[in-house]
């Protein structure tokens, strides 16, 4: 029992350090693309620390606070279910559907808190965020179904096991991997899918009223969510049991996503929906037909 707790704490802190460092590194990468130097690799640590320890922060009421607790709390909870490589804190319960839904609790908490601030810009951002979630989830789900069916289990560890026997899904369903990658970019909110945040358009959307520790919490939540989402992608398509391998693949996926997004412009929200429901969804169905045949 105590073992579990220690392991959990180590895991969370480890994931935190890894992801925040990596996101700092990604800022450097983007800077280089834009022909600048960029901040230090540990800049995000400083940012989060500064925000958390700020003396003043504004609250707009109980729901505003409660939503943040819900958002970060459930993201950390989701994190505890995530496996890394072949290791998981609770191996029997590393269930992909549960993880996808628990992420939704985080989004719901954040949405609730954002709208609870009373700022219409936040509301607009949230309505876009939900619409975007609707858009990217669907192609992703079709591919996830295929993988679960082939692996005969929705447990991520079993999916990894299946891939160690049959080779990476990246190679056996490349179209699916592409679809999932595009969905991943939507999940992460990276350009061209950063419509919900839309910094210059709706003043960061949901984030508009956050300051001090609230913003710090949200940054932490975003980092953890990124870890979960990219980690999910890696496990689904390039699953193997080694932890180091996982970290390396993770870095590759994440940095490549950052690099792609740094050269793209933002889409409008209805364009986002139309895009996702036309191309990725179409490709996902195509992949499904290729892999499983036409199934009614």
């Amino acid at each position: 029992m105590v073992n579990m707790i220690i392991l959990a704490v180590v895991f969370v802190i480890g994931a935190f350090i890894f992801q925040v460092t990596l996101s700092g590194f990604s800022r450097k990468v983007v800077a280089r693309i834009q022909k600048r130097r960029g901040p230090t690799v540990f800049q995000n640590f400083y940012d989060i620390g500064k925000l958390l320890f700020k003396e003043s922060s504004i609250s707009h009421g109980f729901i505003f606070d409660f939503g943040i607790w819900m958002a970060l709390g459930s993201t950390i909870a989701t994190l505890l279910f995530m496996p890394v490589g072949g290791w998981a804190l609770m191996p029997k319960y590393a269930n992909i559907i549960v993880i996808i839904y628990l992420l939704a609790v985080g989004s719901l908490g954040m949405a609730m808190s954002a709208v609870g601030s009373g700022n219409p810009l936040a509301s607009i951002g949230v309505s876009r965020a939900l619409t975007q979630m609707f858009a990217y989830e669907l192609p992703f789900v079709v591919i996830a179904v295929l993988i679960i069916y082939l692996a005969k289990s929705s447990n991520i560890l079993k999916i990894i096991e299946y891939q160690t026997q049959n080779g990476w899904n990246l190679f056996s369903m490349p179209i699916g991997a592409l679809v999932a990658y595009i969905s991943l970019m939507g999940m992460l909110g990276k350009k061209p899918f950063d419509t919900p945040i839309a910094p210059a358009e709706i003043a960061s959307g949901p984030l508009v009223e956050y300051s001090g520790k609230y913003l710090g919490f949200l940054m932490i939540q975003h980092e953890f969510a990124t870890f979960i989402e990219v980690g999910l992608f890696v496990h689904l398509f390039m699953g193997s049991t080694s932890i180091i391998g996982f970290l390396i693949k993770y870095i590759i996926v994440y940095i490549s996503a950052v690099m792609i997004s740094s050269v793209m412009a933002r889409l409008k929200i209805d364009e986002v929906v139309k895009f996702y429901w036309r191309w990725p969804l179409g490709l996902a169905i195509l992949q499904a037909i290729i892999t499983l045949g036409v199934r009614f």
Binding site: W69, G73, S74, I76, A77, L80, F217
Partner: peptide, 9 residues
Amino acid sequence: IFGIGFIFV
């Protein structure tokens, strides 16, 4: 687990 996360935060 959800409760733990929530309380911790």
